[in-house]
Design a protein around this nucleic acid. Structure first.
Length: 325
DNA sequence: AACACGGGGAT
DNA sequence: ATCCCAGTGTT
């Protein structure tokens, strides 16, 4: 892989940021083109943000690109000398900081990505649930104990490659694994069950019509009432209040609606009930949906809402969605 | 601790 | 068409 040809911090940084959530085969052509356009940290740090985003187009998660540009500006102003400085760069979390510090600065930090998490959970035959912070910390510590402090960069890359090629999720190739004799899961025969992941929520099915309507320049959601109810088929606001619990069980939009008739028009206010934490740009009175519950992708909703706002003469936009989960 | 971010690949 | 993937920032 092209990023293994150098230990230069900038070159490794670009590769590691691109590789976040993104497959190696996808990254390779972007990596080459990006470096041709931004060959060093100063060039990237001084480039206009839109140029960077254009070069990033197709990779997704664009905050990575924005943060990478800011990080490049920082390292070109001052070359990091240790883990803590790397970790403070925007877009560089615990995993990326450990990878960079070990590869570029030869510092003994274990880089624990999803691959390493899987390898470690199997070596220790640890049934801890992987998304819990306590378990994650335990796996971090174990990876740190296994780390070869003399060659931390090589060790980290070897662990990740082991997870990517041999200690794979579905059918690990224990027969060709170089460390199978140290693997507790292999001894117990549990390698296919590990790592333990959070259980999925109970299956839900819902079929209902959803409709976006504009009221006084705000976008709201109404739904077709269920077939078994009286007034079946009429459009209604989701009932209120809808607790998170109720919403989970009924697959209703988890929002609290209030409405009243004022001067022949109805006013609606919507308060989100789910998620418990709400992004700052979603304020009371704005229309909110959670795709985990409704099955509608947030991006789809956003595009629809924007389309309505851009065409104020459009009073109603309807669409039939079959929701399932 | 929960949520969003964005594509591509697998099913 | 839907599910799955698995680092970081934010709340």
């Amino acid at each position: 892989m092209p990023w293994r040809e150098s230990k230069d911090l900038y070159l490794v940084l670009v590769s590691e940021i691109m590789l976040q959530q993104t497959r190696v085969e996808t990254v390779i052509p972007y990596y080459r083109a990006f470096l041709a356009r931004f060959p060093d940290a100063a060039t990237l740090g001084n480039a206009p943000e839109t140029d960077v985003l254009t070069a990033w187009a197709g990779l997704g998660y664009y905050s990575r690109a924005r943060n990478l540009r800011l990080a490049a500006a920082q390292i070109s102003a001052r070359q990091p000398r240790e883990y803590a400085e790397i970790r403070s760069l925007p877009g560089v979390g615990p995993y990326t900081a450990a990878a960079l510090a070990s590869i570029s600065l030869n510092e003994p930090y274990a880089a624990v990505d999803g691959n390493v998490l899987r390898v470690v959970s199997r070596i220790a035959n640890d049934p801890g649930e992987i998304s819990s912070t306590a378990v994650k910390k335990r796996f971090d510590e174990l990876a740190g104990q296994l780390l070869d402090p003399a060659r931390p960069g090589d060790f980290n890359q070897a662990m990740m490659e082991l997870g990517a090629t041999i200690c794979v999720p579905a059918s690990p190739a224990c027969g060709t694994c170089p460390v199978s004799e140290h693997c507790q899961a292999r001894m117990a025969g549990t390698q296919r069950e590990l790592p333990v992941k959070q259980g999925k929520p109970p299956a839900r099915k819902l079929q209902q019509d959803l409709l976006f309507c504009e009221v006084d320049a705000s976008i709201y959601l109404v739904r077709r009432s269920a077939a078994e109810k009286r007034m079946a088929g009429f459009w209604e606001l989701p009932p209120r209040p809808v607790s998170t619990q109720d919403a989970r069980e009924s697959a209703l939009p988890a929002a609290t609606f209030t409405h009243q008739i004022v001067n022949d028009r109805f006013e609606v206010r919507v308060w989100t009930r789910y998620p418990r934490k709400r992004p700052a740009h979603l304020r009371d009175g704005a229309w909110i949906a959670r795709h985990q519950l409704t099955g509608l992708p947030i991006s789809t909703i956003t595009k629809k809402a924007l389309a309505i706002l851009a065409a104020p003469e459009t009073r109603v936009l309807s669409g039939r969605r079959t929701l399932s989960k």
